[in-house]
Amino acid sequence: MLEIVKLGHVYGTGPTAHQAIADINLEVAQGELVSLVGPSGCGKSTLLRCVAGLIQPTEGEVRLDGTPISGVPDNLAVVFQDYSRSLYPWLSVRDNVALPLSRKGAGRAEAREASERALGEVGLAGAGEKYPWQLSGGMQQRVSIARALAYTPSLLLLDEPFGALDAQTREDLEDLVLRLRTEHTMTILLITHDIDESVYVGDRVVVLGRNPGHIVADLPVVLEGPREQISTRATPEFVALRAQVAQLVREQINS
């Protein structure tokens, strides 16, 4: 379980200080998938960095399974938007996936096995020998996801993971995330600026506002049956919720 309590962050000091986020309170239950959506400048990436332990927030705290986060927690993995920069071109796909495991003290054989298994789960079995730059964008992001999976995190942070991909690939990967969450017990925080995506993938959609970043609305996503790209998006519930989120985001941009 992830608890964000009165979280705020100020960059710099004095007259140039900039409050990026303020008074953010959010609870995400174990195994829940929460979408965070908002206009640019709403402090999404600051929030992500605070939760990931990459920066120390100036106010409030983040607790993961009851333990306050200071520094990068052990059971957390991040998938960044920019896969081509976040994968290492000098390592094979398999070694990219296995790399974080070495910090957890995994042996070579063990890391290799976990790597192959994770690659299989994202549909890249047999691609381990290749190098990331030999793969398409969508496949590279699958490698990033495999790297996160192999790390067996209890919290997975997805930072606009599909923003750079074409529509078809994006849908495939949204479905991949939905499938993976049923097979693993992970809490997932999906940061996105794609309103459709936030509703389609999320159990809840949290809308963020700007100046400084704060929570505007926290909406449950109630959709019948398993999610399917075409039929789910055609349901009245989806359409209504999508419109509601879009309206809230628009208000934030105009405010």
């Binding site: 993995a77 991040v78 960044f80 976040s86």
Partner: peptide, 17 residues
């Protein structure tokens, strides 16, 4: 690339690593 470094940091590696 700062993203490359931050990625490894996000997996808990220290600055030396």
């Amino acid at each position: 690339d700062p993203v490359a470094k931050e990625t490894l940091r996000s997996f808990g590696f220290n600055p030396f690593a």
